[in-house]
Computed example of a mutant assay.
Amino acid sequence: MNLNNTLHPSKPGTEELVPSRYAVQVGEIEVLVISDGVLPLPTEMLGHNADPAARAAWLGDMFLPADAFDWSLNVALVRSGDQTILIDAGLGLDPNLNLPRAGQLVKRLDSAGIDLASVTDLVLTHLHMDHIGGLLVEGVKDRLRPDLRIHVAAAEVKFWESPDFTHVHMPQGFPDALRATAKRFIEEYRSHLRQFDDRYEVAPGVVVHRTGGHTPGHSIVRLASGGEGLTFAGDAIFAVGFDHPDWYNGFEHDPEEAARVRVRLLTELAATGEQLVATHLPFPSVGRVAVDGDAFRWVPVFWDY
């Protein structure tokens, strides 16, 4: 399967007036960034340790609303050799949370002519519901290949046996939903899990690294081929994190460590010049990082038509 061919769907799909997939080439590795939709959340979650006036000033400078705005939800489909790897699986459908504009992944894979049975491997950056919920949608498991390998850090699976929500800052209902979704996912897919400690090569040039911070087993995926590189950073980086890497995100279970991970990763990306994709940066979230004084600057790519 050539991911470039997905620009011309092989079967009719729902017509949408927004872009939902974007192809990138990393040496010999093909990448397709796919939008799972958007997740409206309170702006306080962008930096709950920040001075409210400073947070409001940043939102104003970015022409963003003061109370809540839409966080993008991005996943990636990667083709390396004879393996097709899905990085994260989107939110799925949780009627209790009333998030109708998220959970679009399966529909958008179908519209791109991508058969779920072609996915040989799934890498999960962590087990928050907006990264695993797509696998819990009714009928999805039946469409997956029986030998699907799901790669996740052992520390992440261990954490969700008795998760600690002491340091998060989430809207009401989210902790219970996160806890229940992770438990259900582990129960349903335990036989598919391939757990690793700190680093694992999933396919040629596709390596997953545990970073911790956001969750104990949070991981990033680094692609390298032909002298080019791209990092899928999961939830290590949010839009505000370039200007204010020390601000705590409401979903971080260890916000102090998450901030250290963020600074370290942004520093590395600025030094290497490799491309960055992250779950909650505006779609397609493909860009690079530059150092800007004591902080960083996000440099989005010019779209390649």
Score class of each variant (00 low, 15 high):
8 H>W: 09
211 T>N: 11
217 G>D: 04
71 W>Q: 06
300 P>L: 09
302 F>G: 05
286 V>C: 07
4 N>L: 14
294 D>Q: 14
57 A>S: 12
203 A>V: 12
76 A>P: 00
54 A>W: 00
28 E>V: 08
89 A>S: 14
263 V>N: 11
51 D>H: 03
94 D>S: 10
70 D>F: 14
123 V>L: 12
101 R>F: 08
286 V>L: 13
154 A>P: 03
209 H>I: 03
282 P>H: 02
291 V>M: 13
165 F>A: 05
89 A>I: 05
69 F>R: 11
18 V>L: 12
45 M>Y: 03
184 R>D: 08
122 L>H: 08
232 F>Q: 06
132 I>L: 15
304 D>S: 13
302 F>N: 08
115 D>V: 00
127 L>F: 09
11 K>S: 14
133 G>T: 07
130 D>S: 14
130 D>T: 14
305 Y>V: 13
209 H>W: 09
246 D>L: 11
187 E>T: 12
203 A>L: 11
131 H>L: 13
204 P>D: 04
47 G>K: 01
155 A>I: 07
135 L>G: 00
303 W>P: 14
37 G>F: 06
10 S>E: 11
210 R>G: 08
66 A>D: 11
220 I>S: 05
152 V>S: 05
105 L>D: 03
277 V>D: 01
265 L>W: 04
104 Q>A: 14
64 L>I: 07
23 A>M: 01
156 E>K: 05
87 I>Y: 04
129 M>L: 15
4 N>V: 10
268 E>W: 05
262 R>F: 09
234 G>V: 04
279 T>A: 15
6 T>L: 07
99 L>C: 11
202 V>Y: 02
107 K>L: 08
78 V>W: 02
238 F>Q: 03
31 V>W: 05
191 S>T: 12
150 I>P: 01
201 E>P: 09
146 P>M: 13
267 T>E: 07
229 G>Q: 00
43 T>R: 09
